[in-house]
């Protein structure tokens, strides 16, 4: 029995090593092919000069990083608003009594509309439309209305995620709360929501990553954030390398965040099984 399981373990280890070797070899082959063949393409010299110019990357990178601070700021002040509005809309949609029916309808309309329109369109409509009313400063700022567009859109998505979390909590939890004489509000607040919100953390992490990228859409209505700053450099230098720099900065933030979200999700699956 013991001998057999040792044998089995050894076999599995061999198989694992073999798989690893194959993966390494095939990856190497692909990289070598890229390094060898891409430079042989007719347009490579031109592409390299206009997208991968090391000098330009170095000289523009500091100002790109500085512009990225604005992305972070917009992200940061939008976040609490998205969390609060998302939660409120989710609670609206969860109303069951007849009196609250209008709230429920409002929740449905809200999520349908803001999830149904492309983000960029909402950014244009609100970001150009409202300042177009000729409001006095600071109420004509594209920062405010651009952020609002992101907040409205993302809170619709977050609301749906939270609602999913609420629905995933078994009815017996509500029954237990009610049987103790707790009000519906208290049952929601102390029993259902804490469990639901914990469950949707990974899904919301993915939303955060998407939001971080979509902040760049505000570049179309004015704020000189990372994408727009890269565009300015591009125009002045007639070179696309700043865009590559911008992409690198986004990746530096979004890749770790995505990995972290995946990790949370995997951990949650393990805990529940």
């Amino acid at each position: 029995m013991q001998a057999r399981s040792d044998e089995r373990q050894q076999y599995e280890r061999r198989q694992q090593r073999k798989g690893f070797a194959i993966a390494a070899a095939s990856s190497l082959a692909v990289v070598v092919a890229l390094i060898y063949f891409v430079p042989k393409t007719p347009g490579w010299q031109k592409v390299r000069a206009s997208f991968f110019n090391g000098e330009i990357l170095l000289s523009t990178f500091p100002s790109l990083l500085k512009a990225f601070l604005l992305d972070i700021a917009i992200f940061m002040w939008s976040l609490p608003a998205i969390a609060i509005i998302g939660l409120l809309i989710a609670l609206c949609r969860d109303q069951r009594s007849a009196v609250m029916f209008p709230l429920r309808i409002f929740g449905v309309l809200y999520t349908d509309i803001f999830r149904g329109v492309p983000v960029i369109l909402t950014v244009f409509l609100i970001g150009f439309g409202i300042p177009g009313l000729g409001l006095p400063r600071p109420w004509n700022s594209p920062y405010i209305w651009g952020s609002l567009a992101l907040i409205l859109t993302y809170s619709a998505y977050v609301a749906e995620i939270i609602r999913g979390g609420i629905n995933s909590i078994h009815d017996s939890q509500r029954a237990a709360g009610k049987s103790l004489g707790l009000s519906n509000t208290d049952t929601m607040r102390f029993i259902v929501l804490p469990q639901a919100l914990r469950r949707v953390v990974p899904a919301n992490m993915n939303m955060l990553v998407a939001l971080q990228k979509d902040v760049a859409l505000l570049s179309f209505i004015g704020p000189v954030e990372l994408l727009r700053q890269a565009g300015v450099h591009k125009s002045l230098l007639a070179n696309f390398t700043p865009y590559v720099g911008a992409a690198l900065i986004f990746l530096a933030v979004t890749v770790p965040a995505t990995r972290y979200a995946d990790y949370l999700l995997a951990r949650q699956h393990r805990e529940r099984s």
Binding site: S179, G181, I191, Q195
Partner: peptide
Amino acid sequence: DPQPVRQRIGLVFQSFNLFPH
């Protein structure tokens, strides 16, 4: 209003239904 009534009637479930958090 069911709430005040439920306060005076205790119910224990087959599956415990404790609050896991």
